[in-house]
Design a protein around this nucleic acid. Structure first.
Length: 597
RNA sequence: GGUUCCGUAGCUCAACUGGAUAGAGCAACUGCCUUCUAAGCAGUAGGUUCGGGGUUCGAGUCCCUGCGGGAUCACCA
């Protein structure tokens, strides 16, 4: 039984025994004791003064006395105002540690029988991935891993927006200005090449609009009448009509993009169990829209476009199918959602990792799915996260202010290399090992930087102030792991092998050891919390706290100079559990931890 | 304008979902490498939690209001 639960039960007993009052275990909440007071767990008594019919301070004192008297694990207590701080015996902490040490499944909840789907990434195929995508991918991937650790069966998916007006724009520009360029002929990554033509389209489009406006046309009309825009629209229609030539170009250019994306995903270290392509789902979406129209859920306007009226829900009318029959974003999302439930009928929830700029879209999508009669629509969840801002404001791909994902990852690796060389820490590393280390540290710093922040909040990234490697950072935690690894190597070398028997003979702990055990003991709770709130930041914070507290121990307490063999063996076991837990927690963030650095 | 999210140290972020004297990192300053990795540890300084009301034993957190900022309200995705 967990320490917390045990304590809660005893507090509940204390209430019935002392005050003849019923206080249910589930109504009791404990909080960590603040550092300035002695103890580890604090029970706040203010809310229960009514139950105990005594002042909070008095209530705290009575319960404290009861616990000290009746519960072996409780060694002492102190009361500050209405706060009851509980001190567990060292033997209790040793026991807590032993349980964790022996538990092979520590950090993994058992199978809960639930199946969920997590979507993330889901890029358009007209431009390369940027910093915003990095946050998205790291977040979605990490949430999926956290859910797995909580006992869920998780399917990682993405929807690749491979069709639509955006890719048609790149296709038009390439056809007009490309001169047959390919990734091979230019030596450019495919996604970058296609992205260049997307930018080229926009430049040309703007030029044409300006010309039309100069000729006396108003801006709004000009935007619709610009020849290059009309070409893109025409191409989209041709594509939907499966025009062979258009299809071939589309497949070729998407192929370039996928090859480029593969390189980026590989560097990011994210993966997927199944890929969905918009080109395979939008027709299903169209069918559903037509069905919905027949059922009277949707309505048709005079021009033939199909809409849903959401004014009753306090929203607007929303377009589902254009007058020319081509589909929009919403159309394919309807199809995709339905297809996924056909593929995986047992999933209890679908989680969409998409930026908060699309909150309205998902609100509407879920309502539409509900209107269409899909029960599971209520369980769809938009994991909405904040934008990554630059000091200059929002990133805009067409204005060239984006931070490119490939470039940023490379820069991080370079920075890691520079730091490591400055510190002279690559002694004994082969060139290959050194390169791997730089990558591990660079990407680790980047992932940690993006994941330690509450996902719902927008965050700032300053390219001029490169991501730190000291303090609350990925490398700091990685460093702690490397330090422990060195200790464990030495222990193995000199043949120190702790056993359960050794731990039984241990009866005194250092304060820093108890603090670390307290954190270890908290891990499962943090893990559950992280899943509940879809918050990798809770795991990041945990890993940092653990590393920080271990480093304090490392500084204050000697291991190999310890004369007491039992204490020495304990510290080896203890260090090994910390290293494993750091590795697991960081693993949930997609961050590798090195043995040496 | 409607809807919605946000405003915490000079900067980047926390605060166990209403608990104690609001905490970390960076930047600044002071110590600590003959000892298991100094990418570390210890310490100093830094706050009217945007302003003003309210709710209660208790508010950064909940309610109202003012100010400031973001997102969204597309036949873009």
């Amino acid at each position: 039984m967990s320490l917390d639960l045990q304590l809660k039960q005893e507090i509940s007993k204390a209430f019935s025994s002392l005050f003849d009052a019923e206080l249910k275990v589930e109504d009791i909440s404990l909080q960590p004791t603040r550092k300035e007071f002695e103890g580890s767990h604090t029970f706040v008594c203010f809310p229960y003064a009514r139950l105990s019919k005594a002042k909070p301070e008095e209530t705290a004192r009575l319960i404290g006395e009861y616990l000290k008297e009746n519960v072996e694990a409780v060694a002492d207590f102190n009361v500050v105002k209405g706060f009851l701080n509980i001190v567990f015996s060292d033997a209790t902490w040793v026991q807590v540690f032993t349980d964790i040490w022996k538990d092979e499944n520590f950090g993994q909840y058992s199978d809960n029988g639930k199946e969920v789907m997590v979507e993330y990434s889901s890029p358009n195929t007209n431009k390369p991935l940027h910093l915003g995508h990095l946050r998205n991918n790291f977040l979605g991937w990490s949430v999926a891993e956290i859910l797995k650790a909580n006992g869920y069966d998780v399917h990682k998916v993405q929807i690749i927006n491979d069709r639509g007006i955006h890719i048609c724009k790149s296709m038009v520009a390439w056809s007009k200005f490309g001169n047959g360029e390919t990734p091979e002929s230019t030596g450019k990554k495919g996604d970058k090449l296609v992205g260049d033509y997307y930018v080229k389209f926009d430049q040309e489009y703007k030029k044409q609009i300006a010309e039309l406006v100069e000729g006396g046309m108003d801006k709004e009309t000009a935007e619709k009448e610009a020849p290059i825009f009309k070409e893109a629209q025409a191409l989209l229609k041709k594509w939907e009509a499966k025009d062979p030539e258009t299809y071939e170009l589309w497949e070729t250019m998407n192929g370039w993009v996928y090859a480029g994306f593969d390189v980026t995903y590989n560097a990011m270290g994210v993966d997927f169990d199944k890929l969905y392509y918009e080109s395979n789902t939008f027709l299903l979406g169209k069918d559903e829209v037509v069905k919905g129209l027949e059922k009277g859920i949707f309505f048709e306007k005079e021009d033939g476009s199909i809409w849903v009226d959401l004014t009753e829900e306090g929203l607007d009318q929303k377009l589902l199918l254009r007058a020319d029959g081509t589909s929009v974003y919403m159309t394919q999302d309807i199809g995709t959602a339905i297809l996924r439930y056909r593929d995986f009928p047992n999933i209890s929830q679908q989680i969409y990792t998409v930026g908060n700029e699309q909150e309205y879209h998902f609100k509407v999508l879920f309502i539409i799915l509900d209107k269409l009669g899909y029960e599971w629509a209520k369980e769809c969840y938009h994991l909405s996260y904040g934008m990554v801002d630059l000091p200059s404001g929002k990133m805009k791909s067409r204005e060239g202010t984006v931070v490119d994902a490939d470039e940023l990852m490379q820069e991080m690796t370079d920075t890691a290399c520079q730091h490591t060389e400055e510190l002279g820490k690559i002694e004994g590393f082969s060139e290959e090992q050194a390169k791997e280390l730089y990558y591990t540290l660079g990407i680790g710093a980047l992932k940690y930087f993006l994941l330690k922040v509450d996902p719902t909040k927008r965050m700032l990234f300053d390219p001029n102030e490169s991501i730190q490697f000291q303090g609350n950072t990925g490398p700091f935690i990685q460093y702690t792991h490397a330090r422990i690894s060195a200790i464990l190597r030495k222990a193995e070398q000199i043949g120190v092998v702790p056993t359960e028997e050794d731990l039984k003979n241990l009866n005194e702990l250092q304060a820093s050891e108890k603090n670390v055990i307290f954190l270890l003991n908290d891990y499962m709770k943090k893990l559950a919390e992280a899943a509940e709130n879809y918050s990798p930041d809770a795991i990041a914070q945990f890993a940092y706290d653990l590393a920080k507290e271990y480093n304090r121990f490392y500084q204050e307490v000697s291991i190999f100079n310890e004369e007491d063999q039992v204490a020495l063996k304990f510290r080896i076991a203890f260090s090994s559990v910390v290293a494993k837990t750091i590795a697991k927690a960081m693993g949930l963030l997609g961050i590798q931890v090195p043995e040496r650095m």
